[in-house]
Design a protein around this nucleic acid. Structure first.
Length: 441
RNA sequence: GCCGCGGUAGUAUAGCCUGGCCCAGUAUGCGGGCCUGUCAAGCCCGUGACCCGGGUUCAAAUCCCGGCCGCGGCGCCA
């Protein structure tokens, strides 16, 4: 009887299956241990691992094939499931037939321990690096977080939109955009869906969200920046204040973390001992001015009216953890000079804005606020930021024909994953990271 | 963009400061051998490297210069 892959059973099921029967499994060779007349082969598929034993006196064919196996080769095995005290998990497959589907060359990186090969080299061989269950888990968790975010949005009245990533003008002015050639015209890769989200609200969808790529042409050499990342963006109309936006961000972020933890608790405990598995019922909210004070009390130098340095953010994270017992905190009312033109300012104190950042373990994971929806004010703010209102004409027009008060936020998906799991480098949270040097694979 | 650190076998590292004892050590991998209960198997044998170019010197992995590449910090940001 020929072995058919359609009869294949996921390996994890074998630990509940009836012993004494024959099963077909297939996957990658995790390890091979050759012992003269018997060979142990640990086979791994995405569900788990099991030991296969090939004995010369049971099937010489299978034994011969087993001797030739190399790590990461792809095999299919037909054999009898047996209880075995000596085997991992108490069970193993006694091979009757082993088919080598694809033989692997000697590996260029060590995939059994993610710390044994430097990250750069792992990324060069990303498809192999991801064979490591820990590294694979990061993306299962990321997928779960994205799914949870979508679910939260969908059940809270948000409509998913898909905005253009090829744009004719930079979103916020600045030089941090990638230039591309669009036929015979200059164009850019979108650094944020900001203006289009607002379009969605003003167009009458009222609440919109998008989970998609954002591009930043900033030559960062850090462990927390990518030139291409996934932005979880939301925008909502008819808000009373930016507090409503923070409530939404809090809801999304909490559901992302909770979903990941509840679905992958075991993997998280096994692979990410430093992970945050619980967020407070309500995220603390402090104003920027309070943050300056807290930092000053802790002996950190801050410039009033300026954005926080990354060192100050880290420090603030520690202080909040100590004072409020929370790994996460909203910092609100950022100074106007640290915010883009579309931000709404405090009516009674225009040096400050109705905006916020969300710091998770001392790192900014989200930014948001209420947007300015009054045409004349917005026009002035564009000028005040040194931008030309004429290049924002299509955008400004939206505010002349009925724009409700609104606000929104952008959440960095990879940063949420990184901070939740306690990863040392954001590149680990991106399947194929792009940084100033890396463009391949 | 600015600043700092680094580039040694497939992988990870020692050696570099204080040049010669290094035709480069160790671990792992890889090839071969022994082994019917291992589990990152063990033991034995073998294999394999100083980023590129120039300079200093009797002598360069080691010191100097240039290039390329990598990593990190900062600014800025998600």
């Amino acid at each position: 009887m020929a072995l058919r892959l359609r009869d294949r059973v996921p390996i994890e099921r074998l630990f509940e299956a009836e012993p004494g029967k024959e099963y077909v499994i297939a996957g990658w060779v995790d390890t091979v241990r050759v012992h003269g007349k018997l060979v142990f082969v640990v086979v791994r598929d995405r569900s788990g691992k099991i030991q296969v034993v090939a004995k010369k006196n049971v099937s010489e064919e299978a034994w011969k094939t087993a001797r030739e196996l190399t790590p990461e080769s792809v095999v299919a095995v037909r054999g009898v499931l047996v209880e075995s005290k000596a085997a991992l998990g108490g069970r193993e497959i006694q091979a009757r037939e082993i088919v080598l589907l694809n033989k692997a060359d000697p590996l260029p990186i060590d995939i059994h321990d993610h710390t044994k090969t430097v990250l750069a080299k792992r990324l060069d061989w990303r498809f192999l690096d991801l064979r490591n269950p820990r590294n694979q888990a990061i993306f299962l968790i990321e997928a779960e977080m994205a799914r949870a975010a979508r679910e939260w949005f969908n059940s809270n009245g948000f409509v998913e939109i898909f905005t253009s990533k090829i744009v004719g003008a930079a979103t916020e002015g600045g030089a941090e955009v990638f230039s591309i050639v669009y036929f015979d015209k200059p164009a850019f890769l979108a650094q944020s869906p900001q203006l289009y989200k607002q379009l969605g609200v003003i167009a009458g969808f009222e609440r919109v969200y998008e989970i998609g790529p954002a591009f930043r042409a900033e030559p960062h050499h850090t462990t927390r920046h990518l030139t291409e990342y996934t932005s979880v963006d939301l925008e909502m109309g008819f808000i009373d204040s930016y507090e409503d936006v923070m409530d939404a961000v809090e809801g999304v972020v909490r559901s992302m973390v909770e979903a990941a933890v509840s679905r992958y608790r075991r993997k998280i405990e096994e692979f990410f001992p430093d992970a945050v598995t619980k967020l407070p019922q309500r995220f603390p909210r402090i104003t920027m001015r309070e943050a300056y004070k807290l930092l000053e009390q802790a002996g950190v130098k801050v410039e009033w009216g300026e954005d926080l340095s990354s060192e100050a953010e880290r420090k603030l994270g520690e202080i909040v953890e100590k004072e409020y017992g929370s790994p996460i905190v909203f910092v609100t009312e950022y100074p106007w000079n640290a915010r883009p033109f579309y931000t709404m300012r405090k009516p009674d104190d225009p040096e400050w804005t109705l905006s916020f950042d969300l710091l998770f373990r001392g790192l900014e994971i989200a930014t948001g606020g209420q947007r300015e929806h009054r045409y004349e004010v917005l026009r002035k703010q564009i000028e005040e930021k040194g931008l030309n209102p004429r290049s924002f004409e299509w955008y400004l027009n939206m505010f002349r024909y009925g724009a409700p008060p609104h606000g929104g936020a952008g959440i960095g998906l990879e940063r949420v994953v990184m901070q939740t799991l306690g990863l040392p480098n954001i590149r680990e949270a991106r399947l194929l990271p792009r940084d100033p040097e890396r463009l391949v694979p």
